[in-house]
Measured scan of single mutants.
Amino acid sequence: SRWTEEEMETAKKGLLEHGRNWSAIARMVGSKTVSQCKNFYFNYKKRQNLDEILQQHK
């Protein structure tokens, strides 16, 4: 299923807060499964600069 802007923003916040904790990110997004969140990261990594966001994760 397609990702809305809102879901993407929430997933990015999740990456920032939780790093690669996909289940925590899935809980934040609410409408996507753990594997969908993981796939989002790998599919949108380049397009959305997700690696940069991940590097900011403490």
Rank of each mutant, 00 (worst) to 15 (best):
V34C: 07
N39F: 05
Q55N: 10
S31M: 06
T33P: 00
R20C: 15
C37N: 01
K32M: 00
H18T: 04
T4P: 02
K58D: 15
A24T: 09
S35N: 13
S35T: 11
N43I: 09
G14M: 03
V34Y: 04
T33Q: 00
A26I: 13
H57P: 13
E52W: 06
Y44N: 11
W22Y: 07
N39D: 14
S1P: 05
G30T: 06
F40M: 05
M8K: 10
K45M: 06
T33Y: 04
E9S: 05
E52S: 09
A24R: 08
Q55L: 08
S35I: 11
W3M: 14
T33W: 02
K45C: 07
G30A: 07
F42P: 01
C37R: 00
M8P: 09
D51L: 04
Q48F: 13
D51P: 08
E7A: 12
N49K: 12
E7G: 07
K46G: 09
H18K: 13
T10A: 07
Y44D: 03
V34M: 07
E9A: 15
T33R: 00
E6Y: 06
Q48T: 10
E17M: 07
R27T: 12
K45V: 13
E9M: 04
Q36K: 12
S35R: 08
Q55Y: 03
E5M: 07
E6M: 04
G19W: 10
R2L: 13
C37Y: 00
Y41R: 03
S1A: 03
T4Q: 00
K13N: 08
T4H: 03
H57C: 12
Y41D: 00
Q55E: 14
N49G: 15
A11R: 08
Q36D: 09
E5Y: 07
K45P: 06
R20E: 14
K32H: 03
N43L: 04
R27S: 11
R27M: 12
Q36F: 15
A24D: 08
I53P: 11
V29N: 00
T10Y: 10
Q36P: 02
K13M: 01
R27N: 11
Y44W: 12
W3T: 09
Q36H: 10
K13D: 05
S31C: 01
A26N: 00
K46M: 03
H57E: 04
V29Y: 02
T33C: 12
N49F: 06
S35F: 03
L15F: 01
N39W: 14
S23Y: 13
E7L: 11
S1T: 09
Q36N: 05
N39M: 11
S31E: 08
R2D: 09
F40Y: 01
E5L: 08
G19N: 01
L54A: 13
M8T: 08
L15C: 05
I25Y: 05
N39V: 05
T4C: 02
S35K: 13
S23R: 09
E7D: 09
E6C: 01
E5S: 06
L50M: 06
E6S: 10
A24V: 09
L16E: 07
N49R: 11
I53D: 09
R20A: 10
E9I: 12
G19A: 15
K46R: 06
G14L: 02
I25E: 01
K32Y: 05
R47T: 14
K46L: 04
K13H: 02
E52L: 12
L50Y: 01
G19Q: 02
A11H: 12
N49L: 07
K32P: 00
E52D: 05
N49S: 10
N39A: 12
K45G: 06
K32N: 00
L15H: 03
E5V: 10
C37Q: 00
M28V: 06
A24Y: 03
R20I: 08
E9Q: 10
K32T: 01
R2T: 14
K13L: 03
K38R: 10
A24W: 03
Q36Y: 14
H18A: 02
Q36R: 11
N21K: 04
Q48A: 13
L50C: 07
C37W: 06
R20S: 12
A26K: 02
S31W: 03
T10R: 14
I53F: 07
E5Q: 09
E6H: 10
R27I: 03
S23W: 15
G30Y: 14
L15K: 14
S35P: 03
S23C: 11
S1M: 06
V34L: 14
Q48E: 15
S1I: 07
T33L: 14
L50G: 13
M28Y: 10
G14I: 01
I53N: 11
Y44R: 07
G19D: 01
W22A: 01
E52N: 01
T4V: 02
Q48L: 15
A11S: 05
M8F: 03
S31V: 05
C37A: 08
H18C: 03
K46D: 13
D51A: 10
M8C: 00
E6D: 10
R47E: 15
F40N: 01
L15G: 00
I53A: 14
K38H: 03
L54N: 08
V29Q: 01
G19F: 15
W22H: 01
H57A: 11
I53L: 11
C37I: 13
D51N: 03
K46Q: 12
L50W: 14
E9N: 10
L16C: 07
T33E: 03
K32L: 01
M28K: 14
L54D: 14
K45I: 14
I53C: 11
H57F: 09
Y41M: 08
E5A: 10
K45D: 07
A11G: 08
Y44M: 06
E6I: 05
L54V: 13
L54S: 12
M8N: 09
E6A: 14
Y44T: 06
V29R: 01
Y41K: 02
H18G: 03
E7R: 11
E17I: 13
V34N: 02
G14S: 09
